[in-house]
């Protein structure tokens, strides 16, 4: 039986100061693999729709006719499945997550296809 068993740890903590960081004044650095959110390099996308079909939560929508790719931010579970199956590897996992919001956020990316271009 011992009585002041905690005192050594407590004294150490007293001299060390806080172990926590003062968020949001000081932000914690993310790691290279940190899962934040999915981003698309829309110019290389071929709108095959594989990401939409494989997404476990149905967050991604691909509109081939209007060359539009969109994602429901808060429905996405950052599993990275879409970026793994993407044949053009145009989907990437960014480290910064979507900031909290009161409403659902659907991000849209539209590929500019210049159909009036004289070359085509």
């Amino acid at each position: 039986m011992s009585y002041f068993s905690m005192s050594k740890i407590l004294l150490k903590n007293l001299f060390h100061g806080p172990y926590t960081t003062l968020y949001p004044i000081k932000k914690k650095e993310s790691f290279g693999r940190t899962r934040g959110r999915i981003e698309i390099e829309i110019d290389s996308c071929i709108f095959c729709g594989l990401c939409q079909r494989r997404c476990p939560t149905g967050a991604i929508k691909v509109d081939k006719a209007n060359t539009k790719w969109s994602i429901e931010r808060f429905q996405c579970i950052q599993c990275n499945y879409c970026s793994e199956v993407c044949p053009k590897k145009c989907l990437t996992m960014e480290n910064q997550y979507t900031s909290p919001a009161h409403e659902k956020v659907r991000d849209e990316r539209i590929k500019c296809t210049n159909i009036q271009s004289p070359n085509t």
């Binding site: 790691f31 693999r33 940190t34 899962r35 950052q78 996992m93």
Partner: peptide
């Protein structure tokens, strides 16, 4: 360690 190795 988890965040560094797996991302989550």
């Amino acid at each position: 360690i988890f965040e560094e190795t797996t991302g989550g």
